[in-house]
């Protein structure tokens, strides 16, 4: 069981962060996901699907949290969280220099839907397009092409930012 938690916690973290939550809120959502798992694990009929159950549950938690946060805080805050790296990350970026900063900037410049899709998909070994389609509100058939379009946008932004 520890192995499952160790393997999945970082994945859930990135999935939740894809929704633009700050680090503290993301921790809360990840924790709520595991608490939900503890409470509901017996209802997971197919143990094969446990990873996708966890990811789906984290995505729902993240989406619900975003709705609550939107009511509670000015919209700009949420947008900024999504666009700006955290302070410690920004420092790390400055240390690392141009290339990583350009990549970060390129991702930040694409629309929220693309950013969210790419970050979620990047952390799934074998993406479950059916449950993704429900959560991201996209037809199953359009996820592959949308992913390609979003990557093209990032590539475009990189080119415009100079280099590549």
């Amino acid at each position: 069981m520890d192995e499952l938690v160790a393997a999945m916690t970082p994945v859930l973290w990135h999935v939740v962060r894809a929704y633009g939550h700050d680090r503290e809120a993301a921790e809360d959502v990840v924790q709520a996901t595991w608490l939900g798992f503890v409470r509901l694990h017996q209802t997971i009929e197919d143990p094969q699907a446990v990873a996708s159950w966890l990811i789906t549950s984290a995505r729902r938690g993240a989406a619900a949290h975003a709705r609550t946060a939107r009511r509670a805080a000015p919209v700009q805050d949420e947008t900024l969280h999504a666009v700006l790296p955290d302070e410690e990350s920004a420092e790390a970026l400055a240390m690392r220099g141009d290339e990583a900063a350009r990549l970060w900037g390129a991702v930040a410049s694409v629309d929220e839907r693309c950013r969210k899709l790419l970050r979620v998909v990047a952390f799934l070994d074998r993406p479950d397009y059916h449950s993704l389609s429900r959560d991201l509100d996209m037809p199953v058939g359009s996820i592959g092409p949308t992913r390609a379009r979003c990557l093209a946008k990032v590539r475009d932004a990189l080119t415009k930012g100079g280099g590549r």
Binding site: D2, T9, Q31, L118, F123
Partner: peptide
């Protein structure tokens, strides 16, 4: 490349995995 970027620049807080293991355990 994007995954590496997120892993490097936005990693989970250091104690998160251990805390979650404790919760589930």
């Amino acid at each position: 490349e994007l995954r590496d970027m997120w892993v490097t620049y936005d990693p989970p807080p250091p104690g998160l995995t251990a805390a979650m293991i404790a919760i589930v355990a």
